[in-house]
Nucleic acid binder design. Structure first.
Lengths: 134, 134
DNA sequence: TATTACGTTGACGTTAACGTAATAGCAAAG
DNA sequence: CTTTGCTATTACGTTAACGTCAACGTAATA
């Protein structure tokens, strides 16, 4: 019933190498079951992998993700742990929001550059190669 | 008139080490003038540094930024180069937009986790530690 | 039964982005 | 005039995130 995936299936789906997946297991992000010696990944692992890949694309280290997973797994119903997790989550949220601003700023600059290009292409005006003004 | 900065001034402003700045120069991102042997950074360098740091925070490699700078500097008024630059810029823009989606997705997941935590904190319900449903 | 495909575990290699000395020059302050 | 502070260069060290063999087991297939 609950679907399972082989390592190469996941690799294909997420366009990464099997080596990368094994590496994620090495650092504790995944803990697939085994069919004898072969790995079998369930939905939980798939979800974690997905999350890990997203994080990596944002420059978040695997160690940080691992920490979050651990906190989440061990939170249970203990007040202290739950509050600690909440604090962590908020810090990450703030980080993400800052990066969102970074992206917005970069998109702005890129738009500026694109406009410069288009202007140069449109007319052959005099144009100095300089960086965007403050 | 046009302000100049010492290496440590920039380092302080952007909260990085002087070593990092020298490294950025090593890889060709900055090309400060010299007062004898000492570096003097102008506004152009400051702007580039700022951009480089933003990019780094988003996981964009210094090499990629360097490439963009080079393209931009050498574009001049040559149609081919300008169009090449535009193409690069667009690819980066798309990348950034995808990362923006990544952030949105992660923020969503974090919100989900936070809610779980809060629910656990509110009542002491039975609660299984599992990963977010597909 | 030999080939092909996919899986495994080591274990060393690589790249990026700096960190971290070590050593030394110069300039103002005590 | 020496200590303090900033600067410089050279060069080896470090960490993360895999890449890249090597050497092997297993299972379906020609």
């Amino acid at each position: 019933m609950t679907p399972v995936y082989t390592i190469s299936e996941l690799a294909k789906e997420f366009k990464i190498t099997t080596r990368a997946i094994r590496h994620y297991e090495d650092v504790g992000l995944l803990s697939p079951q085994r069919d004898g010696i072969n790995r079998l990944f369930g939905n939980r692992d798939r979800a974690r992998l997905k999350l890990a890949l997203r994080a990596r694309r944002l420059g978040i280290s695997l160690a940080e993700i691992h920490e979050l997973f651990d906190l989440y797994d061990n939170a249970g119903n203990e007040r202290r742990k739950l509050e600690g997790l909440l604090a962590k989550l908020e810090r990450h949220r703030i980080e993400l929001e800052q990066r969102s601003e970074d992206i917005a700023a970069m998109l702005d600059e890129f738009a500026f550059f694109e406009n410069q290009c288009r202007r140069s292409l449109a007319g052959s005006h005099r144009q100095t190669v300089e960086t965007k003004p403050a």
